[in-house]
């Protein structure tokens, strides 16, 4: 059973200039453990597709099934609960909360979703940070970390609730090339452990790590390899 099953999704926005279709009858299936890259030019619909998969936005038509849930049918409350347990999100600009330490940032999803007993949350956060090589930064505020370290912390946070799906929107866009490669290696390792990773990217540096690619052009899937 695929982790992601997008069926004939169309998304149209109303704009002052008239209706704008960001996705047109897009379909996509991704299995567990895949590392999928979503590529395409700016405005091709990459972020919109990611928003459909994470339930951040709703399709105008079509169906979105992710991790066994019909995401397009869930209300906001149910979506929040579902997303917290099933999807880890990594942003381009890391988006760590500036007044929480790195460990606290990682503990936050567990706190919101109540997924692990209180006593287990910090050890788990530290274990994730250890895995990504930044355990010694655990009690520092994000501002004290480099960009690469912040992105690793953000990935740790995304995995805090052990979701079956990790979604990253241009996670290497703000990193230098060597740090970006380290992050890609991390994603590959995570996928290898069975977590589906979906990554929006502009560059071709990810090619050696990914297992499949979806290319979007003019709101449709132009290639899926």
């Amino acid at each position: 059973m695929p982790v992601i099953d997008v069926r004939e999704v169309t998304k149209t926005y109303d704009t002052p200039q008239g209706p704008f279709t960001a996705l047109r009858r897009v379909s996509l299936k991704t299995n567990a453990g895949e590392f999928l890259a979503v590529v395409g030019r700016s405005g091709s619909g990459k972020s919109t597709l990611i928003n459909m998969i994470t339930g951040i936005d709703r399709p105008t038509s079509g169906e979105v099934h992710v991790a066994g849930a019909a995401v397009h049918e869930l209300d906001q409350q149910a979506l929040a609960v579902w997303r917290g347990r099933n999807v880890g999100v990594v942003f381009q600009f890391f988006q760590l909360l500036p007044t929480l330490t790195v460990a606290e940032n990682v503990m936050l999803p567990m706190d919101f979703c109540d997924t692990y007993p209180r006593a287990e949350r910090r050890p788990r956060a530290l274990a994730l940070l250890e895995r990504f090589g930044i355990a010694q930064q655990a009690d520092k505020l994000p501002a004290a970390l480099s960009g690469g370290q912040q992105q690793r912390a953000a990935i740790a946070r995304a995995l805090a609730n052990d979701p079956p799906l990790l979604v990253a929107d241009e996670p290497t866009g703000n990193l230098d090339s060597s740090t970006a490669i380290a992050v890609l290696e991390l994603f590959a390792a995570i996928a290898a452990e069975g977590t589906t990773v979906v990554m929006v990217t502009h560059g071709s540096d990810a090619a050696p790590y990914i297992t499949s690619t979806v290319e979007l052009a003019d709101a449709t899937v132009s290639a899926h390899v």
Partner: peptide, 16 residues
């Protein structure tokens, strides 16, 4: 606002 968006993205509910 951005922080609120991030918290929601990592699982916070409106009530929280």
């Amino acid at each position: 606002i951005r922080q609120i968006g991030v918290m929601k993205a990592i699982g916070a509910r409106t009530g929280q």
